[in-house]
Amino acid sequence: PGQLQRWLNEATDPSVSEENWECIQRFCEQVNVGTEGPLFALRLLAHKIQSPQEREALHALTVLETCVNNCGDRFHSEMAKFRFLNELIKVLSPKYYGIWSSEKVKSRVTEVIFSWTVWFPQEVKIQDAYQMLKKQGIVKE
């Protein structure tokens, strides 16, 4: 987890506006090392995505999307659990981090969850999470 944390800190540095693809790539490679990789990686990513610093959160969303495209089934099954989906939902909810997160971050989180409903139709929990957000009026069509 230490190495994952170091790559992620560098990849989400809020003082840098450009994407650091080298660090993002290293982080994704590190996710696949060891059985705990996906679990730790998602825990670290959730924390960064919840950051009140817009740039840090947006960088973290880019890292997340790169991982979804590059990491395997173990990462996908872990991100499709309520444990991680709840962390994303907290960014959208005014009862949680929604009061600090910017509209830009919130709309990207919504896009990410929506895109997963399309790419991973077999993941029932993703569909449930999205339906709940719609029912609560947090996601508008």
Partner: peptide, 15 residues
């Protein structure tokens, strides 16, 4: 040998 991999999950957050 048993893995430490945690397969458990939470419930969907009620907001």
């Amino acid at each position: 040998t048993a893995s430490f991999h945690d397969d458990s999950d939470e419930d969907l957050l009620n907001i």
